[in-house]
């Protein structure tokens, strides 16, 4: 794999916990690779499987969905629906041969700037050896 390959990651962050946690990472000046571009959604429960398929289709090498920890959802239970729905998405993507590392989900609270930083670092590290994602990617 070329040394300068930089995976492209889209991260769907819920506004109340994970986006706030990512803000905290910023306020604390923690450093992580710039490969991830965040999209703030209201709740992890609003992340449709279509978003994930579409992101891969548009060329994402990795997709992250991050929400509040179970029991902490700002909308009471949106993250539980997300957990169920996205588990199915993960199983399906693996089944059609997408590398399991490419789709990830995490719980990041507003206080977990460190955890967010670590997740992004690990994600980029895991994606690099895989090279570009081509299976779902539309030919440009």
């Amino acid at each position: 794999m070329a040394e300068d390959y930089e995976p492209r990651i889209v991260a769907f962050l819920c506004k109340w916990c994970s986006s706030a946690g990512s803000d905290l990472a910023g306020v604390s000046r923690m450093e992580y690779p710039p490969n991830v571009v965040p999209i703030q959604v209201m709740c992890s429960g609003s992340v449709s499987p279509l978003y994930i398929f579409s992101a891969f289709n548009k060329g994402a090498d990795g997709v992250l969905v991050s929400g509040c920890h179970p029991g902490d959802c700002h909308y009471i239970k949106g993250n539980y629906y997300a957990r169920r729905r996205l588990n199915l998405v993960k199983k399906l993507l693996e089944y059609v041969g997408l590398e399991t590392q490419r789709f990830q989900m995490s719980w990041v609270s507003a206080a977990e700037g460190t955890k967010f930083t670590q997740i992004i670092k690990d994600f980029v590290k895991e994606l690099k050896p895989l090279g570009p994602q081509t299976k779902l990617r539309r030919n440009p």
Binding site: V41, M42, C43, G45, S46, V47, S48, P49, H74, Y75, G78, Y81, A82, R85
Partner: peptide, 8 residues
């Protein structure tokens, strides 16, 4: 406005 309905 959480949007859980949208994803469902």
């Amino acid at each position: 406005g959480c949007g859980t309905c949208t994803a469902t």
